[in-house]
Design a protein around this nucleic acid. Structure first.
Length: 149
DNA sequence: GCCAACGTTGGC
DNA sequence: GCCAACGTTGGC
């Protein structure tokens, strides 16, 4: 089981929007980068990802879970790119800011720090645990067995 | 298939 | 709003 990080500009799609979408979740579309696409394709149902607010906020604000694996994005005329479906799992009591991440020597190799442009990133188990703790989650959220129709 | 020009992302 | 970093495009 892998962990991930998804970036979104809150003016376009925010954590609040994601929460409002409820358990049904939403598609995560608009990825037009091949590295990001490869990460999307590697995601499995039940895996979890941080929800990161880029530009405004610049912080990890919650956890989402993958509820549908990679499928083609109908909004992509090239047919090359795709998306997954996610739903909100748990908010961070204390959003973990980019600033805090950069100041933490344990997180210096995070993709967010090393390649800030990549919009869909892998997160290591160690990074996941550190950030969940800093975010105010006593432990990483339970992985629920997700049943799809 | 190289690489310059251009567009976009996202931190500052 | 600026601009650095990065990806993509297209001329050759």
């Amino acid at each position: 089981m892998a962990y991930w990080l998804l970036k979104s500009e809150p003016s376009k799609w925010s954590w609040q929007d994601q929460v409002a979408a409820g358990a049904k979740g939403t598609f995560w579309d608009g990825v037009r980068n091949h590295s990001a696409k490869l990460n999307l394709m590697a995601m499995k149902v039940g895996e979890q990802a941080f929800f990161y607010h880029s530009n405004e906020g610049k912080a990890i604000v919650g956890v989402v879970e993958i509820i549908a694996p990679f499928y083609p994005d109908p909004g992509d005329p090239s047919g090359k790119f795709g998306m997954v479906d996610v739903h909100a799992v748990e908010p961070f009591a204390n959003p973990v800011t980019l600033d805090a991440i950069k100041k933490d020597p344990r997180l210096k190799d995070m993709v967010l720090v090393v390649n800030s442009r990549l919009s869909v990133q892998p997160v290591t188990d160690a990074e996941w645990a550190i950030i969940c703790a800093e975010g105010g989650l006593a432990r990483a959220p339970e992985r629920k067995q997700t049943r799809l129709g």
